[in-house]
């Protein structure tokens, strides 16, 4: 019995190593003084960070990613929150169909969204433009806003707005002072998910972004098709730092949302 337990624990530990190892192995390589992406490291150096942070290529890509990500997030949060407000507590059949439309971009393979947007946008001159890329990212990001906000609204006690009305609040005031603060954490976590979706996207960017809109993942994708240099691992390390901070932020938000529900 205890032998089985030992085996079981070892197996689980191995799975955890499998999950984390590929993320951890790239970090030390970014401090390599050599040109190869392999161990053992010949020595310590910050040259690759210098190349990434003081060269044009990566900084431009980072700026593009942030710019497109923020715009797509703003658009997703605005459109997604409005539509969640429209959908919440609706029983009719058409609401189900509309909800299907709203979450469909999450189910349909991204490659198909990218290819169809490419065919649609190319004749309109929207490929190779920031606008096209922002719209493309909004398509794939918006379900991540609709779903959490809709959940928050459905959990909301309908008596709250009635109480506000009974106290003499106008619908507008009641919305701003009662509903909005309650759905805020859901909107924030939706926004984070939307941003992460845009920030992590390669497929849509491959089809819609031109040379001027190269995002960080697109640049990384191109770089990976040729032999890697430690510059790549330096960018990867920065991205790990960034996504870990997003992740911690997300955990905080969710904890707060859970506390509120209790």
């Amino acid at each position: 019995m205890s032998l089985w337990k030992l085996l079981y624990w070892t197996f689980c530990a191995a799975i955890l190593v499998y999950l984390i190892a590929p993320i951890l192995v790239v970090i030390p390589l970014s401090f390599s003084s050599g040109n190869l992406v392999s161990y053992p490291l010949p020595g310590f150096s910050l040259q690759w960070y210098e190349e990434v942070l003081f060269g044009d290529k990566w900084i431009k890509a980072i700026a593009n990613s942030l710019f497109v990500g923020v715009l797509a997030t703003v658009l997703s949060v605005a459109l997604g929150t409005l539509s969640a407000l429209g959908l919440a507590r609706s029983q009719s059949g058409w609401a189900g169909a509309i909800k299907m439309l709203f979450i469909a971009p999450m189910i349909v393979p991204v490659i198909l969204i990218a290819v169809s947007s490419y065919f649609f946008m190319a004749p309109l001159g929207l490929t190779n433009s920031y606008l096209g890329l922002v719209l493309g990212h909004t398509i794939i990001a918006v379900p991540f806003v609709v779903l959490p906000v809709l959940t928050a609204l459905e959990l909301l006690d309908p008596n709250l707005s009635r109480a506000a009305a009974a106290c003499g609040a106008t619908p507008r005031f009641a919305f701003l002072s009662v509903t909005l603060p309650i759905i805020m954490p859901a909107m924030a976590s939706g926004a984070l998910f939307a941003f992460a979706t845009s920030f992590d996207d390669v497929v849509v960017a491959l089809f819609l972004a031109g040379p001027d809109q190269r995002t960080l993942p697109k640049e990384l994708f191109t770089a990976m098709r040729s032999p890697m240099t430690p510059a790549y691992t330096a960018v990867a390390t920065l991205m790990i730092l960034f996504s870990t901070s997003l992740f911690i932020l997300m955990q905080r938000l969710q904890r707060r949302a859970r506390a509120q529900q209790k």
């Binding site: 999950l19 984390i20 590929p22 993320i23 790239v26 992460a196 920030f199 992590d200 390669v202 993942p217 990384l220 994708f221 990976m224 990867a236 991205m239 790990i240 996504s243 870990t244 997003l246 992740f247 997300m250």
Partner: peptide, 9 residues
């Protein structure tokens, strides 16, 4: 954590 880390990383 891996879920949040970029696919390319």
């Amino acid at each position: 954590l891996p879920f949040w880390t970029s696919l390319l990383v």
